[in-house]
Design a protein around this nucleic acid. Structure first.
Lengths: 188, 188
DNA sequence: TCTGAACAGTCAGAAAATTGACTATAGTGG
DNA sequence: CCACTATAGTCAATTTTCTGACTGTTCAGA
């Protein structure tokens, strides 16, 4: 029951089509919620049926027609209800961590490779987020924007995503280093 | 298809019952994979059917009987296969982040409260992890243990868990501070 | 002596997420 | 002209995860 709230939150920035949402849920939103297009279209249909969002058909000449969705008052109320209910703590759930947990019984070379690769992905994400953050705050500095800016929600979650990626990258690098050192020591 | 590998990894430390696994998946393992007892019993049954783990009935006088599971050679091979396949990057998926994303449209007081609460939970987890880490490395220091210790896999993932929680706690505190400052500025 | 926690597990059902198709049109690069 | 990408979606099936209830025993503490 939380994808629906994530969709509502994503629509707060303004009218969006399912297709646009699919992209948002693949980059910015993707820090804390990821969803495939199919899920989003299905969820939008349910949200519309429940009156939490309103769809508006836009006929296009040069592109396929699309439907733009907005949060209704009911949708906003639902979001407020959701915001005040306690949420259970999160965890990571990452295949790579499972592999590292089994590090003593699996070949080190591939594991090191994956850790290095993952660190690179994290670095790329950090750059992406830095770009998003810059765009969101415009020409102001962060402290000023956070103090007086409008719509700081996405900015705050993006900061969390950035920090998560930086942390992840550091861990990947340190872990790869540990495994390399052991492999070299063992090979001697 | 990754709970099964998480279970295999958890069984590397030695024979365990479903009940014991359920506890492992609620604390140590819980950093990167969480599962309820029902899931674990079901998964163990499947793993046994597929010959990846072997169960052994232990008759107890004073306690209910139990079944202890070990990873078979086939299971170890499966784990190695899993370890060398690429894994998709992880993301957070946290209700609280969804709420913060909607921060501009939901009541601040409750959100701040939840952030503070979450920071406290994170602090408690950090202490738990620190205890686990101390236990795992015994009287050695970390660098020495990581260089020469046996079974460092769980230690490395626990470090990731610790780091994740520390990062999360910091973000919660900073975010709460930002929201408080805005609320006070707005109230003036 | 009663209560509650710890031990050890099982069953059924619902909800959520993933996988893998498939339909169209328009524009761009080679 | 061909291949490819981007736009804008839909459908079906399966897999995975979560929710909630249920059955027993033993031991420690009030």
């Amino acid at each position: 029951m939380a994808l629906r709230h994530a969709v509502l939150a994503a629509l707060l920035d303004g009218e969006r089509s399912g297709y646009q949402l699919a992209k948002v849920f693949d980059v910015g939103m993707a820090n804390f919620w990821h969803a495939l297009p199919q899920q989003l279209y299905a969820e939008l249909a349910k949200l519309e049926r429940d009156g939490l969002v309103a769809g508006r058909e836009v006929v296009q000449e040069t592109r396929p027609n699309k439907r733009l969705f907005t949060v209704t008052d009911e949708g906003a109320a639902e979001l407020r209800r959701f915001a005040v209910t306690p949420s259970k703590p999160s965890f990571i759930r990452d295949d790579l961590l499972v592999k590292v947990a089994a590090a003593d019984s699996v070949p080190a070379a591939e594991l090191i490779e994956q850790l290095v690769e993952r660190a690179a992905v994290a670095t790329a994400k950090i750059e992406l987020f830095d770009g998003l953050l810059r765009t969101m705050r415009g020409d102001r500095d962060e402290a000023d924007f956070l103090a007086t800016g409008a719509r700081i929600g996405p900015y705050l979650t993006c900061l969390r995503g950035r920090s998560f990626e930086a942390d992840h990258r550091d861990w990947c690098e340190r872990t790869a280093e540990v495994l390399r050192a052991r492999r070299n020591a063992g090979a001697r």
